[in-house]
């Protein structure tokens, strides 16, 4: 872990010294600033503040908001709501998993895509739906997935917007 990250975590820890049981806040702050709560951050928090690593990991693995690895450039959200499920959301997810070689919650090795499955994106009329960054794709067909993904390779999230 580099000194910059250490400094950031130290500052966060200091901010919460007077608070009763600030564990969750500390972890949220670390994720907000450093993008994720990876193993070395957790170990550092455990060592410097007397928490147990077991407890911290328990918290991090319980709440879906925490990420153990930094997210990719683009986040793909697959809708698994009722409407999308009925119209083939599961097949879309399976295909995307095969194309990217990752499971929901993971990031591709090249760091381009993070795959997430979500409950409902609120546009059931377009089902099945996937969302990449802020762009929504409705009536998705498994045959079209490759085409959609190509657009994002080598383009960062900001440029695309």
């Amino acid at each position: 872990m580099d000194t910059k990250d250490k400094f950031i975590i130290d500052t966060i820890l200091e901010k919460f010294t007077d608070m009763k049981d600030p564990t969750l806040m500390i972890l949220q702050n670390i994720q907000e600033i450093l993008g994720c709560v990876r193993e070395e951050y957790l170990t550092y928090v455990a060592e410097s503040n007397g928490y147990s690593l077991t407890e911290l990991y328990g918290i991090v693995s319980f709440y879906p908001q925490f990420r153990l690895s930094p997210p990719g450039k683009h986040t793909i959200k697959i809708c698994k709501g009722t409407a999308c499920h009925v119209r083939g959301g599961a097949a879309i997810q399976k295909n995307l998993q095969n194309l990217l070689g990752i499971k929901p919650g993971d990031t591709t090795e090249d760091g381009v895509f993070t795959l997430e499955s979500v409950r409902c994106l609120g546009c059931c009329g377009l089902s099945p739906v996937i969302m990449i960054d802020n762009e929504t794709y409705g009536r998705v067909k498994t045959s079209k997935l490759q085409e959609i993904l190509v657009k994002y390779k080598g383009v960062s999230a900001n440029e695309n917007q």
Binding site: E39, L42, S52, L53, T54, E55, L56, Y57, G58, S61, F62
Partner: peptide, 17 residues
């Protein structure tokens, strides 16, 4: 502090960090 509950719901298990 060797073991704790990790993950949630049906995937909860007693495990190590």
């Amino acid at each position: 502090h060797a073991i704790g509950i990790t993950n949630k719901g049906n995937e909860s298990i007693v495990s190590t960090p």
